[in-house]
Simulated scan of single mutants.
Amino acid sequence: MRRLQQLKNVRHTLTGALTAVLSAALLCLAVLGTGINAKAAQLATPLEGVDISSYNGNIDFATLRASGISFVMVRVGNTKYGIDSKAVENINAANAAGLRVGAYCYTYAKSAAEAAADAELTLSVINGLPVSFPVAIDIEDKSQQNLPTETQQAIVNTFCAIIQNAGYTPIVYTNKNWFEQKLGAVSWDAWVAQYNPTCTYSGAYTMWQNGIASSLPGAPGQIDHDYVFSDYFNQIVENGTSSVDGATYVNWRKTSGTGFDGTNVTKLSWEQDLLNSIGATTTTTPATTTTTTTTTTSNAEQKKKQLKEAKDDLANKQAYRDACQLQLTLYQQQYDAYYGLFEQLAATPNCDPATLQTAADSVHMKQQEIVDATNNLQTAQADVDAAQAKVDSLSK
């Protein structure tokens, strides 16, 4: 069994391998049609929304909704500069006013591993909050403009895969020129920024940021203005079955249903996804099979059957052990990302104490998860050793 330090040393290799698999699978999914996404259920009339951050100050969301705004995309932050100081407040307040609420991460990631850290930070912020609209990765920073297309695709695919595996609907935001000249077409929903009377992006898209509004009731100063074309309002439901995609949702998060590419998938916990990805069964220990010996069953046949059952049991326990190993590796990676964020915040002059405490709490949470995952791995390894001993005994 590997020690934590060994896991830390191999985490980048593991992340790279997982990212390569995700990217290869996701890049082969073609975006059907051009213009407004033909695959998604469409609204009869596009609805208006805004996207906001702490820079927009205090917003009267009830007044904003009364003015005709239907949804809000809230910035959550990133691992470079930390959590947006008004993210949680904005999400809760917008939801209380009856608005649909999405989230976005303005990423500075230059690799898939950094994108994964941003995705995990995003999930840590929105977990338990009423996020009822898509969750976006915003890729447009000047530090990323010279990255190769394949690197940008890996960044986007990694972030969106993690968001989707957590039950949310991912979407990719950038401007029209960036989509066309740097990132290329994506197989996720697209949110295109183009300040123009019409959106002239030829690829598929479900949302459009069309400009900046300077006089919206309830919003002080200027605020980004958007349109949504896809019926996320009926697709993403609080609890129950979606009338649009037939998926099951619990607290706004998908737990089963159809993936964006039309493939029938079942979304359980991400731990179960890991088990499924390495071929483990949905139970960690197979049910005991009772063998009834008849007078016609020879001792040799009975032993052969017992050996087969023991080998099946061993394979199942090994698969679960491997899943525990991978889970521990991922927790260690998340810990490093959270600790790095905490160090950045601690070194920032006049850092908001509440923000620093949130970061510290995240570090402590990951520490405990690492301890629990280590114990699970030790138990799983002991079960493998016992199962192996039984196979060895029956093989004699």
Rank of each mutant, 00 (worst) to 15 (best):
L326V: 08
T292W: 01
Y335H: 10
T292L: 11
T291E: 03
T348I: 07
Q332D: 11
A300F: 06
T348E: 08
A360V: 02
D312N: 15
D372F: 02
K366H: 05
K305S: 09
A354Q: 13
A315E: 10
L341D: 00
A337P: 00
A373T: 01
K308Y: 12
Q333M: 10
L328E: 01
D313I: 03
P349S: 07
L314R: 02
Y339S: 05
L330F: 10
T374R: 04
T293E: 07
D322I: 02
I370C: 02
T297P: 03
Q306K: 12
T374S: 13
A347C: 07
Q357S: 13
Q334K: 15
Q334N: 06
P353M: 06
Q367T: 07
Q302L: 15
D313S: 14
N350T: 11
D322G: 05
T296M: 06
Q306G: 09
N376D: 14
K317R: 11
T358M: 09
Y338R: 10
A319D: 03
N316W: 06
Q333K: 14
D313L: 14
Q325K: 13
F342P: 01
S298P: 08
Q367H: 08
C351M: 13
K366S: 02
A360E: 08
T355A: 09
M365S: 12
D312Q: 14
N376F: 00
D313R: 13
A337Q: 01
L330R: 08
Q368P: 07
N350M: 06
L326F: 09
Q344M: 09
Q334Y: 11
A360H: 09
K311L: 07
C351I: 15
D322H: 05
A360F: 08
K303D: 03
D313N: 15
Q306P: 03
T374C: 02
Q367E: 15
D361H: 07
Q325Y: 14
E301M: 07
Q318T: 13
Q333L: 12
Q344H: 12
A360R: 11
A315D: 08
I370S: 00
T374F: 05
Q334R: 15
D361A: 13
K308F: 09
